[in-house]
Design a protein around this nucleic acid. Structure first.
Length: 705
RNA sequence: GGGCACUUGGCGCAGUGGUUUAGCGCGCCGCGCUUACAUCGCGGAGGUCGGGGGUUCAAGUCCCUCAGUGCCCACCA
């Protein structure tokens, strides 16, 4: 058969051209969409960190978002998908510092001003790459509304929200033990820690008991404490036991002599102490442990900081230990204690050690003056929105993660001593805000808050938030209470928690491990449509996806199938001035059994795709369209149509078959479009249609909403 | 220490309130260049549904238990 259309589908000749067509049409912008479109449908793109190129997780999320947006756009909604990028405070800073390290420099060598300049340069480069990647995927984002979490207006909004909280008394400043990264030189919230199980030791140390309360020299007997961190004993200001612990009943109220420091410290009782751990007696270091700090507060204990911000022993410790690194100090202290015969025994002990999530440096807990957000009231609001069902999680089980975290939440430490971020708007403070403080405002600040903009009025609350489960607490929770606090309304109705893409071996995809796949490579190899379809095809289950390139190969074959089915239909209708009308004009009595069957299958497919997409079952939806098009339409109906056309008794019968062929094709393009936007648009542009729209993207759906 | 998931043909996965011969993609084996497509068509091989126990007329599908895998949460020092 001779045709102007090539036999095999060549995505390379299509995708960039079609994307430009869409951009020119302006239809990514809800204000430029044709028709009345009263109902809105909004998704705020989770702004990717500008730390580097997008990975498969982003590609998955972008695909899922775009499917929803295109589906709703076809259904006649006024759709907005708003793009942006996140400055990603500490992550980006660490990333740029890594680059500097290649030249043997630290950020301190450069100084703050130059360093920040360098980060902006980095932002410009990677921010640009990221946006290009979204375009390659076919994302129908409204580029006219793009935002960056540190653009001028956004920064103003962040300031506004901080002051707003502050005036309400929800933000306060306090000096207490916090998590400290000695490399980043900043505080960190609990969520920014990465715990690793490590084999360590449990040292049983004898603290001499003091007989009276005066003479340090007169000691009699010992109280033995068990600890994993002997070096912190330099800052001990008490020994604590559980009040119910009979073993120590007569010791409470007396004193012990802190070895090496030779200081008198009280023995107190506190319910926080677990009598079953170790000896039941615990050394209390209020400066370097939050629990000890709390014990210290209730017993009015002294707070002695012995580890500084460099991770070295401070001047508060005996001279021999001063300035030693924590690990060196530990070695020395154990040795010294052994010499004094004060180590009763050493046990093997494995426990979780906190590391900086970003730079993998061991975290120290030390006292520092920081800013906190009071969480109790905000947490209650956030909980209520989900309990009431006003915000729903999909899959529902992730609501448990959400509730669990909220139910024992602590105040949020929001100040950081890094350089890249939003400056805390208080005089004399050089700290910046936790990056999640600004991300939490994304759904409404990106729409114009604090100004009462038309966008805010039109598009807030948004419809769906789609993200990965690892940031439910970091981000989703905080967006919800921020939305409630500042907008008095939920920021979105549905939260779709998508799976995480693993390697085929079930390992996490990671650049550093070399297991990551760049979605752009897949797009170059198979096309964006095939890549999208292959990814979505795998989103069937309830847990993580082991990425399999085979499914993308399948996506590519599917595109080819669609292309060739089109060629067949086009050939059938090419012999006349045939025009495909959007409404099928064939009287029911003239339909053959085959005709009826395929029309019925079409309706069923439309319904089930709608149903599955409503429930965020993307993989199922993809399989429905695939099966319908390939098996019902191509394998069966197209084959049947050949004989129907050849054997038809009248011209009308022949025409009917052609009408049905082209009707099914056009309808299929609509259903397929959210999944495979490029090829379907390309074909649409070539079809002879009455009432042809400028783009398939804005065609009429099968029924009106 | 708690919690949430997962374990189905070689590989990656479906099997939604128990419904007849357990499906799909990729791979494999036959046969086909039939004028949409060989990036294809038709046909086929291949599974004791992680182990054990239970409920039932009937169980990948419900319950219990064991094992393995992955993830999340946690101020046992």
């Amino acid at each position: 058969m001779k045709s102007k259309i090539l036999k095999a589908y060549n995505f390379k000749k299509v995708e960039d051209r079609i994307y430009r067509l869409w951009l020119r049409s302006g239809f990514f912008n809800p204000d430029k969409l044709p028709g009345k479109r009263k109902k809105t449908y909004t998704i705020m793109l989770p702004p990717p960190n500008i730390t580097g190129r997008l990975h498969m997780g982003h590609a998955l999320n972008a695909t899922v978002n775009d499917i929803l947006i295109r589906w709703k756009r076809l259904q006649g909604y006024k759709t907005l998908w708003l793009p942006g990028t996140d400055h990603a405070g500490i992550s980006t800073q660490v990333r740029v510092e890594k680059e500097l390290k290649k030249q043997g420099k630290t950020r301190f060598d450069l100084g703050k001003k130059l360093f920040i300049k360098g980060v902006w340069k980095w932002k410009k480069e990677y921010g640009g790459i990221i946006l290009e990647q979204f375009k390659k995927l076919g994302s129908s984002l409204d580029w006219s509304r793009i935002r960056f979490t540190m653009d001028k207006k956004y920064s103003d909004a962040v300031k506004e929200s901080f002051l707003n909280y502050y005036k309400k008394g929800l933000i306060y400043k306090k000096d207490r033990p916090i998590n400290w990264c000695s490399r980043c030189k900043t505080s960190l919230s609990d969520l920014e820690l990465d715990y690793k199980e490590e084999k360590g030791k449990l040292w049983y140390i004898k603290y001499p008991l003091m007989k009276g309360s005066r003479k340090v020299s007169r000691t009699s007997g010992f109280i033995i404490v068990a600890t994993t961190r002997p070096e912190t004993m330099l800052g001990d200001t008490a020994v604590a036991v559980n009040p119910t612990d009979k073993r120590y009943k007569n010791m409470v109220g007396k004193y012990a002599l802190l070895p090496l420091v030779n200081k008198k410290i009280p023995i107190v009782s506190d319910r926080l102490i677990d009598p079953k751990f170790g000896t039941g007696a615990v050394k209390i270091t209020p400066a370097h442990d939050l629990k000890d700090y709390n014990v210290g507060i209730s017993h009015n204990l002294e707070i002695v900081q012995v580890i500084d911000e460099e991770g070295r022993i401070t001047g508060n410790a005996p001279a021999v230990y001063q300035n030693l690194r924590v690990s060196e100090a530990r070695e020395r202290i154990v040795k010294d204690l052994e010499k004094l015969g004060l180590i009763k025994k050493i046990e093997e002990f494995s426990h979780q050690i906190p590391y900086c999530d970003r730079c993998k440096t061991r975290i120290e807990v030390l006292p520092s003056e920081q800013w906190f957000v009071k969480m109790d009231r905000l947490a209650k609001m956030a909980e209520k929105e989900v309990r009431s069902g006003r915000i729903k999680f999909h899959p529902k089980r992730f609501e448990k993660t959400y509730f669990d975290w909220l139910s024992n939440i602590k105040d949020w430490c929001i100040s950081r001593q890094i350089w890249w971020g939003h400056k805390i708007p208080v005089k004399g403070v050089n700290d910046v805000l936790d990056t999640w403080f600004s991300s939490a405002l994304w759904p409404f600040v990106a729409l114009g808050w604090p100004k009462k903009t038309r966008d805010l009025e039109t598009f807030y609350p948004t419809d769906v938030l789609s993200t990965a489960r690892d940031i439910i607490n970091l981000w989703v929770v905080r967006m919800i209470f921020s939305g409630m606090e500042f907008m008095k309304k939920r920021p979105f109705k549905d939260v779709f928690i998508h799976p995480i893409i693993l390697t085929k071996q079930g390992k996490r995809m990671s650049k550093s491990l070399g297991t990551g796949i760049d979605p752009i490579l897949l797009i170059d190899k198979y096309g964006a449509d095939a890549t999208r379809f292959g990814i979505v095809w795998q989103l069937t289950g309830v847990q993580d996806v082991r990425f399999n390139e085979d499914s993308i190969v399948m996506g590519k074959k599917f595109c080819n199938k669609i292309w060739n089915a089109t060629r067949f239909v086009m050939f059938q209708i090419s012999d006349s001035r045939f025009q495909i009308s959007s409404k099928l004009q064939v009287s029911k009595s003239k339909l053959t059994e085959n005709d009826k069957k395929i029309l019925k299958a079409l309706n069923k497919t439309i319904k089930s795709v709608d149903g599955y997409l409503t429930k965020f079952r993307f993989g199922k939806a993809a399989r429905e369209v695939y099966n319908f098009f390939w098996h019902d339409f191509c394998d069966k109906y197209i084959e049947q149509s050949k004989s129907q056309i050849a054997n038809s008794k009248s011209q009308t019968e022949k025409e009917n078959t052609k009408k049905i062929l082209s009707h099914i094709l056009l309808s299929s393009l609509k259903i397929l479009h959210p999944f495979l936007p490029f090829i379907t648009e390309e074909i649409y542009q070539k079809l002879p249609l009455t009432n042809k729209k400028k783009c398939l993207m804005i065609e009429d759906w099968f029924y009106s909403r």
